[in-house]
Design a protein around this nucleic acid. Sequence first.
DNA 1: CGATGAACTGGACTACAGTCCGTTTATGTG
DNA 2: CACATAAACGGACTGTAGTCCAGTTCATCG
Lengths: 197, 197
Amino acid sequence: MLGAPPPRERADAARNRTKVLAAAAALFQRQGVDAVSMDAIAAEAGVGKGTLFRRFGDKSALVAALLDDKERDLQAAILSGPPPLGPGAPAADRVRAFVAAYAGYLFDNLDLLRVSETARPGARYRIGAYRFWHLHLAILLAEARPGADAGYLAHALLAPLGAEHVTAVLGECDAERITSGLAALVDALVGSRQAPP
Amino acid sequence: MLGAPPPRERADAARNRTKVLAAAAALFQRQGVDAVSMDAIAAEAGVGKGTLFRRFGDKSALVAALLDDKERDLQAAILSGPPPLGPGAPAADRVRAFVAAYAGYLFDNLDLLRVSETARPGARYRIGAYRFWHLHLAILLAEARPGADAGYLAHALLAPLGAEHVTAVLGECDAERITSGLAALVDALVGSRQAPP
DNA sequence: CGATGAACTGGACTACAGTCCGTTTATGTG
DNA sequence: CACATAAACGGACTGTAGTCCAGTTCATCG
């Protein structure tokens, strides 16, 4: 007995969702994420503003929807890809691999991520993806550093992976320097790389 | 020969600045920082909106002005107070002391800091205070961890001290847990506390 | 096929941040 | 004190996020 008999999405709703996402992607590419207003997206998609907001709630959710695919790829690689990102490697190595992979994802989608994380206060911490990254890191850190407060440390390690933070630091350090700085931070937390026994 | 003969602030300007800060402080206390609009502050202070913005630029700067005194106190304690927060203690101890002191300041002024850091994108990283904290940490980390990228690590250590981050994590960890988690992070970076030689 | 109602639609509306510019006023000078 | 002028003033104006709701459309069921 399934609690929720899947309430199918209406055909017109699905059509509009597609139109909106396509319009948003086009406008973002053409004018940059910040320069595009929700009115402009609605106009480009040929739908009313009410439709836009009913479906996506706010700009941060609309942008998150655009990132959905890439995010899923990373999550899939973590859950069932090859080690060390996927299961099978020692926890410390998996933390290192996750931070490096996430940093890559971040640099590739910096503007979209920044908007989705900051369009409204606290947005970053409420979307499902943050919870996923946090849970993943917390489990690994609990294994790599027994006795430490893995739950908090996972939050602390995600803090310098925020798009807003990275955007600001990019004004001063290039991507490579950030990546190796993050690696150094991880090493300090889970111990430097060492040969397996 | 001083380059800038100090252009004194006009008397009406000074009066209005005081009125605005007082009105803002009163409204913030009465209704919470988020619920107060710039229009409301202007009305309460009895000045026009143009005056408000000419003087403070935006909401984030207005809030920063309210924090100015407390911020100066902390900066003074760092520059010339007693060790370990002030000069004289080993660098690692000073990092620990700074993070603990800053966390206290953060918890005491969380709402104001959150608004001043997020009212507009990148605000946190542009205000003078951030540069001060960063420079201070970078110098200490360079001493405590020679060879590491102190400039980047200082940014990374400031990331979990962001008001937005702490606000979100407070939904899950209490202040004490955050403080000790931060201490653990610092210990991982600069080494656990050890007896002086 | 026609009725029914839940879900969806679009655009007018509100509230707020931030800009602009014609008017007023403080201050220094003769 | 009268004047000149740079600075400050204030409120009307603009652009945008997000809300609301009267009307419409889709899917289902007799």
